[in-house]
Design a protein around this nucleic acid. Structure first.
Length: 918
DNA sequence: GAAGTCACG
DNA sequence: GACGTACGTGACTTCG
């Protein structure tokens, strides 16, 4: 008897996309879902000759986005997010794959794949055929009929018959449509009846037969929300019933008999596999019948065995390394880690590489141990260049996923060795996207939290203080235990996070924002930025002279020398010895001498401390600039490159922002004229210029969008001055004073305002501040609503989300201490706005290099990111061509995933230095 | 290592 | 009645 297999191609690729590693092929195209799809077809082809196997087969795909259901209900599937960016190019490849297997591919304008599947299935059954639908779509389960139609879920190799449908939904296939209608579907935007989920729906349909039966019985039900909802939403329920019904009478485009399997011709399939570099599949061509398909990367969370340090291998000969490389190639993924002589990736030397293929299947490849008198002799190890030459093709193989913990570091180190690691997954970023705000993301902490494993401490290997040694001085056994464990633990963490990402809704931000950013940041760190050492050193000398003069003056005013840099001593001098009034002590009993306090004293001409306070403020400004910038930055110049290389942390700021360390290049002075001079020391190479592009008021724009404030939206759309508008709304007139206050209030709103905080900033009473806040909320009710909605959400869920789905957790929202709760609340109000802004500039960074390359601007180098600003170095001649590209990429960075109701404005400047570019 | 201060968005 | 007062960072100095 003919047996027709109908493959739900569209449904499959979405699931495959989320469950498989994000592989790319040798052309750099993302092919994770395509690979999964190909292995599935392969699996089906294996059944070809079995008794119950397919005789006819077709793949059904979705073609159009609008169908008859949209005419019925314009909101149908209206809120579906667009498919992930790296999935979109895979859709046409799915068709290529299908053709490579010589299978018919059926898609039709105006119909969903489900309707086509239903129509082909019914037609086949009418002729007495067997039908199997390869899908796990719940709507399709309405078609299941024991004896003639079943479903096959290839991901877990499960057959679905009537019993399985009953088990899952409480009713059989015939009544499933009624249950689905009452439940509704938030993804497809089928409304259903509010308050009715799968359990209630099943119970109602069991009792009353179908939707009409339930609605008819509603007036007789006992009083309650359910009854009210059924009556009130009766029409929605009826429409939902029509929405979930499958059309079974679509005219068949391809006659059933034409779906007969022809066998799989070798050549096109070989060409397809070769094009994508699916080597493991290629190897199996010709032995289809008995070859097991490589398991996919979705690994169940079975308990792993404890880490066994004795099982780790030290790889010191060619054959052993070849073996590891080969197995990695076959498997398709591998965890890696590098050991180096230091912590600065742009300077440290590579000492060894560790790899893990499976729990406890890990090794260490020493490459630079010994060569000093602490080890009696240089241990036997592979020649560094030879080993790197063997690792390079593996680390660059588009069909092998490289997994690392903080892989950015390894990318920088290996990049300096001529190896471009790709494709990749990074467990530190995965952890951050899942659990930001809950805990740190260092490997030791994650191993303790998720694996109940305490990692060998680095300091136990290399020691501390004077006796601390470099990793290259560690004997190979100890080095192997430590290094291989890191790769092993990384592998174990990856399996868990990989499963959690889709389950917890974090795949979107990981795949669209943070994962692709890792190599971009690695390249920025490697490039560094040129610093004019002489300029800095001249500033240092200038500042030193001024500081010496100030010091003499201050000591003279105080009547005796003291340490100006000591807040404790300064407080004593001001408030005890000189008798300044109104000193405020903090909880440690030290007088506050911060900028607010000193400014207050300096402004009071009658105070005995006015003069000294003013001089200390000058001294503080110069001391800060000299110590933190003009002196320190000179020491940060890398002798090899002559440039300064910061390190960005992708997991440092809870909101999703980057942070910058060693040195921090995100807090270079700009607000005072003296400080600004330091920016003039950040320069371009000869023949080049610095270009700085920054988003104008991005957070306020996002607030206007997210809180839906029409006046603010219009003002941004018209290019009006936003603080003047706020001043007009709040105070009825615009002048310097009201505009300044309005600006303060606008920012205060973004940070979760309190009447006391605002009162302090504006120097008004708390009551007056409260009046302004009330007025603000009355003029912009969307803001009040945003704050209420956000705080309700965070109290209930414990986290906030950005427009791209980035979560930030706030465990303190449930603290029993009121001030902790309130602090968490303010941070939660700010997090979606600051975080969305971070998501947007990150997407701009991810897209920048390809966009520049496409425009023939390969010499434009992105160097720095400062939250809402990107800094580039480029040949003078490229400036005019680069500006519109950079502007466009930044302004459209949210799209198409998020469509904003405000424009994003970008301001661009250029000059010989960073200072001149502003 | 904590506290205080101050540089940035 | 105490808490502590605007969000997010990192670096430097002093001091115990």
């Amino acid at each position: 008897m003919p047996h027709l297999y109908l493959v739900d191609g569209s449904g499959y690729i979405f699931r495959a996309y989320h469950r498989l590693p994000p592989l790319t092929n040798k052309h750099g195209e993302p092919v994770g879902a395509v690979y999964g799809y190909t292995t599935m077809l392969w699996k089906l082809a294996d059944d070809l000759h079995k008794a119950d196997g397919p005789t006819h087969m077709a793949v059904i795909l979705d073609k159009s986005s609008t169908t008859f259901r949209n005419q019925m209900y314009d909101q149908y599937k209206a809120h579906r997010p667009p498919p992930p960016e790296d999935l979109v190019p895979q859709f046409p490849m799915i068709r290529d794959a299908t053709r490579a297997f010589s299978l018919p591919c059926i898609e039709e304008e105006g119909w969903e794949a489900d309707d086509l599947i239903a129509s082909y299935a019914k037609a086949a059954m009418a002729q007495g055929w067997q039908v199997t639908i390869v899908s796990s779509d719940k709507d399709l389960m309405q078609l299941v009929e024991d004896g003639s139609l079943d479903m096959l879920d290839t991901m877990n190799n499960r057959r679905i018959g009537e019993a399985e449908v009953v088990e899952k939904f409480g009713v059989g296939p015939k009544q499933l449509g009624d249950v689905l209608a009452l439940m509704g579907d938030s993804v497809d935007n089928v409304p259903g009846v509010p308050g009715v989920g799968p359990k209630t729906a099943a119970k109602l349909i069991q009792e009353h037969g179908d939707v009409e039966g339930v609605l008819a019985a509603a007036p007789e039900m006992k009083k309650g929300k359910l009854k009210d909802n059924l009556i009130e939403h009766a029409e929605a329920a009826r429409m939902s019933r029509r929405l979930v019904a499958l059309a079974c009478d679509v005219p068949l485009q391809v006659p059933l008999d034409d779906l007969m399997l022809q066998g799989i011709p070798d050549a096109p399939l070989r060409a397809f596999l070769d094009h994508h570099g699916f080597k493991s599949l290629m190897n199996r061509l010709g032995q289809v019948a008995d070859a097991p398909v490589p398991e996919n990367a979705s690994v169940p969370l079975e308990e792993d065995p404890p880490c066994d340090h004795a099982a780790y291998e030290t790889v010191v000969d060619e054959a052993a390394l070849d073996r590891w490389v080969q197995v990695a190639r076959h498997q398709g993924w591998i965890a890696i880690d590098t050991e180096t002589t230091g912590t600065d990736a742009t300077r440290a030397d590579l000492v060894g590489v560790s790899m893990a293929l499976h729990p406890n299947l890990a090794c260490y490849v020493p490459l630079g141990h010994g060569g000093n008198d602490l080890l009696s002799e240089t241990p036997v190890q592979l020649d560094r260049n030879l080993a790197l030459a063997k690792l390079k093709p593996l680390f660059e193989d588009p069909a092998v996923l490289k997994i690392g913990h903080n892989l950015k570091y390894d990318m920088v180190v290996l990049g300096r060795c001529g190896i471009d690691v790709a494709p990749h997954d990074d467990t530190i970023v995965m952890s951050f996207d899942l659990d930001a705000g809950l805990h740190g993301h260092g490997m030791d902490e994650l191993a303790a939290t998720h694996l109940s494993h305490s990692c060998i401490a680095y300091k136990d290997v290399v020691g501390t203080g004077k006796s601390q040694r470099g990793f290259h001085e560690i004997d190979l056994d100890a080095a192997t235990r430590y290094a291989a464990e890191d790769a092993d633990v990384t592998y174990r963490l990856w399996k868990r996070f990989k499963a959690r990402l889709p389950a917890e809704g974090a795949t979107r931000v990981y795949e669209m924002v943070d994962r692709p950013l890792v190599p971009v940041i690695a390249r920025m760190e490697r490039r560094g930025i040129k610093i004019d050492r002489e300029k800095l050193s001249a500033l240092s000398a200038d500042f030193a002279g001024q500081l010496a003069t100030l010091e003499t003056t201050i000591h003279g005013l105080a009547g005796a020398p003291f340490t100006i840099g000591s807040p404790k001593q300064l407080g004593d001098v001001l408030f005890e010895q000189m008798g300044v009034k109104g000193g405020r002590k903090g909880k440690s009993g030290v007088y506050s001498t911060d900028v607010n306090e000193l400014t207050r004293i300096a402004a009071d001409k009658d105070s005995p401390g006015a003069e000294i306070a003013a001089r200390v403020l000058d001294w503080r400004e110069l001391a800060k600039l000299k110590n933190t910038y003009t002196d320190a930055l000179q020491d940060e110049i890398n002798p090899e490159t002559g440039r300064v290389h910061t390190s960005y942390s992708l997991t440092g700021a809870q909101t999703g922002r980057l942070s910058s360390t060693e040195p921090n290049l995100q807090n270079i002075p700009i607000r005072t004229e003296t400080g600004r001079q330091i920016r003039d020391a950040f320069v371009a190479e000869p023949g080049n210029v610095i270009l700085a592009a920054d988003y104008s008021q991005i957070e306020l724009r996002l607030a206007a969008h997210m809180a839906d404030v029409p006046q603010l939206r219009d003002a941004f759309a018209n290019g009006d001055d936003i603080h003047s508008l706020t001043a007009m709304e709040l105070f009825g007139e615009v002048n310097r004073d009201t505009r300044g206050r309005a600006k303060t209030i606008n920012f205060a709103i973004l940070y979760g305002i309190s009447r006391w905080g605002l009162a302090g900033r504006l120097d008004v009473s708390a009551d007056e501040a409260q009046g302004m806040i009330d007025r603000y909320f009355d003029r912009f009710p969307g803001i009040r609503n945003y704050i209420a909605t956000t705080t309700e959400f965070v109290r209930e869920k414990g986290f906030t989300q950005t427009l791209f789905g980035r979560k930030t957790h706030f465990p303190r929202i449930r603290s029993k201490l009121q001030h902790e709760r309130q602090g968490a609340e303010r941070a939660a109000i700010n997090a979606p706005i600051q975080g969305t802004s971070a998501d947007i500039i990150k997407r701009a960074m991810v897209r920048m290099e390809p966009a520049l390359a496409e425009a023939g601007l390969g010499h434009v180098r992105m160097l720095l990111q400062v939250h809402d600003e990107l800094v580039f170095e480029l040949p003078e001649g490229d400036v005019e061509a680069a500006k519109p590209v950079i502007e466009r990429v930044m302004a459209t960075a949210a799209e198409p995933a998020v469509v904003l109701s405000v424009p994003l404005a970008v301001e661009i400047g250029t000059g010989a230095s960073w200072g001149a570019a502003h």
